[in-house]
Design a protein around this nucleic acid. Structure first.
Lengths: 193, 193
DNA sequence: CCAATATGTAAGTGAACACTAACTTACTTT
DNA sequence: AAAGTAAGTTAGTGTTCACTTACATATTGG
């Protein structure tokens, strides 16, 4: 699925609307206004509103997957790898806050199965990369084996998600990367034996 | 703010709709259908759809506050107190799954300020009780003081929230209490020194 | 008995929604 | 130069939304 430049512009505008004012704010009228064209023009690029969201989520999942894979390759040491993975996430969302919504929407939206599946896929992608790092860390003895890799992954992911939520709820008023490093650092410290 | 019995029935039906099929599914038409009366009858009990949600969130926040306060009183020992607090939460949401939505909605809905504020209030209530317990645990030496009580609270809350999200996303297909005990137990173990 | 109150119904309202049909314009390919 | 294509426009469509008005019925307290 290749995304044309004009489609990407629309996707980014859609993400902006959702992240700024919530899902209810994403209407064809408002999206067209932001694009400085009419509602009908939207349908030259996407066949439905749902397709806009699904394409956006697909694009986002691919981006995140690539980034995390490249970070994993660059950092063989597990503790540093996890740290670098979250650093990469913080940097990404700092630069592309319009995609923040995709972290939280899961299980709430359900306007369609396609959207729900797209959101879940993003979560699964992240989980897979993190779980790999944690397992490596357990093998090398860097992380505790008192609890399963799945449990440790859950704790780290939960910590990350809440951090991003609070950043968003605060109107992105603090340095998500700096505070994120502290809190992810603390969580990493707790599972490091 | 006292809630009349008929109002409570409507609130519970509204929570059911949201938890079953998402926020978009909460329409006056569907809510009236579930109550086996007409849309107009809703407006005998609430002056707007927003008031239904705000009243529901207020009711929920009060319930949770009471429960956590009573649990805290019954368990002076911090580690056991935290465990009992989450046990209480698991039991509550197992019995009242219609209120699950309120855990996740934060920062996403924004259909109105009143709703957003109501959801945030629930988060604040929980955080306050948990933070107290963690601070007590640090004072008594039960919990590590390597990280701030706020950071530890964040990690535990994030862990809890993700657990509830996964329960909901799975269609509540597993025993939230049993699995929750394991995962909260692991998190508690990590912060116990 | 009767007036007040609570709780319902039938039948609508205008506004907003996603989406479509028909037509136009600009650029590119042959 | 002609034909095709990409990307817009105007002016709608029917549907659904939250909510309202006017009226009906049942229960209850003085």
């Amino acid at each position: 699925m290749d995304i044309k430049p004009r489609q990407l512009e629309i996707i980014e505008a859609a993400g902006q609307l959702v992240t700024e004012d919530g899902f209810a704010a994403l209407t064809t009228k408002r999206l067209a206004e932001r694009m400085h064209f009419t509602e009908a023009a939207l349908y030259r690029h996407f066949k439905s509103k749902e397709e806009i969201l699904v394409t956006m989520l697909h694009h986002l999942a691919s981006n995140i997957d690539e980034r995390l894979a490249s970070v994993a390759e660059a950092h063989p040491e597990p503790v540093e790898r996890v740290r670098a993975m979250f650093d990469s996430q913080f940097t990404y969302f700092q630069k592309n806050p319009q995609y923040l919504m995709a972290i939280f929407a899961s299980g709430l939206l359900e306007a369609s199965h396609g959207i729900d599946a797209g959101i879940e896929r993003i979560m699964v992608v992240k989980r897979r990369h993190l779980l790999n790092a944690i397992k490596d860390g357990q093998r090398s003895g860097a992380f505790t084996s008192d609890h399963s890799a799945e449990t440790l992954t859950h704790i780290i992911m939960g910590t990350f998600r809440l951090h991003m939520l609070q950043w968003r709820m605060s109107g992105r008023s603090f340095d998500v990367r700096k505070k994120g490093r502290t809190i992810i650092g603390a969580a990493l410290d707790l599972i490091t034996r």
